[in-house]
């Protein structure tokens, strides 16, 4: 006899916007495949309650400069690929990423300060090396972001890249570049529901359609503010489902960047023996951070280690199973 348990069903009025990254030749791009996220009208993985048309996607992060500050574990895995973004991207595709996130750190004024042409060339090379959709992030300094992202947008016209980060300070330029060349933007705000909404409003004011905006709510890693970012994401998602149009963007979370910055994953010197195997610990850190954020509503998680990709994909598959 089956127990007569009534599962309570919540009836939401809103849904997350469906957004497609990348364009194939048919749509004016050169991608071999595109990735669509969003579209759900229920909380994460509650498929009994509503419909979840697309699985969350898993991205791998690559950079256009040898990432000196990365954990030795990551350096060990990727090896010399770290010096060649195109080859790195190709490998990332091989190990199962759905999306490539390319960070143009070499353009940072305190780093190599490479120019717009360099950025455009790097993006072209990466586009040539992989058929996956691309998210391109600037070095994180507003003026330099503007400079390189505008050039990238132009060089990759029609590819439906996601350009980021589009922040309070530089959203106008990034949005205008996206508008001019048919791309999306990643709107990033510092862990705050209202700021996230406000930026979406400002972006809309510039006439970029909301089906071209991803939100990065700024997230922390396990042990480093994960709970806080969880609750902000959850609130954003509940607001989206209750019909608040300016919060209905799919969420992208920079998991790898945060998780591999934690002491627990980054280093193995001077740590208690009880912490156990370093490599396992590092992967756990990234996987736990990612899976928590998926439960909070992440639509794209950006990882750094391929082992985590495999495990997170497995997690998603089992959570998505009927």
């Amino acid at each position: 006899m089956t127990p007569a348990v009534q599962i309570p069903i919540e009836k939401w009025t809103g849904k997350v916007r469906e957004i497609t990254l990348g364009a194939t030749a048919a749509d004016g791009g050169t991608r071999a495949k595109t990735v669509t996220v969003g579209g759900e009208n229920t909380l994460p993985f509650l498929s009994f309650e509503g419909s979840i048309p697309h699985s969350p996607a898993v991205a791998l992060e690559i950079q256009d400069h040898y990432p000196n500050d990365w954990s030795p574990l990551l350096k060990e895995y990727w090896g010399d690929l770290l010096r060649d973004p195109a080859a790195w991207a190709r490998k990332a595709e091989e190990v199962g990423a759905d999306i490539i996130v390319l960070k143009l750190i070499s353009a940072h004024p305190e780093g190599d300060n490479t120019d717009a042409a360099h950025a455009a060339a790097t993006v072209k090379a990466v586009l040539g090396a992989t058929g996956l959709p691309l998210v391109v992030l600037g070095p994180g300094q507003a003026d330099k972001d503007n400079e390189v992202l505008v050039a990238v947008a132009e060089a990759a016209k029609g590819e439906r890249l996601a350009l980021g980060n589009c922040e309070d300070k530089n959203y106008r330029t990034v949005v205008a570049a996206a508008l001019a060349h048919g791309h999306l933007v990643v709107a990033k705000t510092p862990i705050d529901v209202n700021l996230a909404k406000q930026l979406n409003i400002l972006i809309t004011d510039m006439r970029l359609d909301l089906d071209r905006v991803l939100m990065d709510p700024t997230t922390g890693a396990l042990g480093y503010g994960l709970e806080y970012s969880y609750s902000v994401m959850e609130r954003l998602r509940i607001a989206a489902l209750t019909g608040d149009s300016m919060t209905q963007q799919p969420l992208i979370c920079t998991v790898g960047e945060e998780a591999w910055r934690a002491k627990e994953s980054k280093v193995n010197t001077g740590v208690p023996a009880a912490w156990g195997d370093w490599k396992k610990r590092g992967i756990h850190w990234e996987v736990l951070t990612a899976s928590t954020q998926l439960l909070a509503g992440a639509n794209i998680v950006v990882l750094r280690h391929p082992d985590s990709v495999a495990r997170i994909k497995q997690t998603i598959a089992s959570l998505m199973a009927e």
């Binding site: 503007n146 132009e154 106008r172 330029t173 949005v175 205008a176 001019a180 510039m206």
Partner: peptide, 12 residues
């Protein structure tokens, strides 16, 4: 046009 237009639009 692209160089100037974007600056007019983004307010620079």
């Amino acid at each position: 046009l692209r160089a100037w237009g974007i600056q007019l639009v983004d307010g620079r």
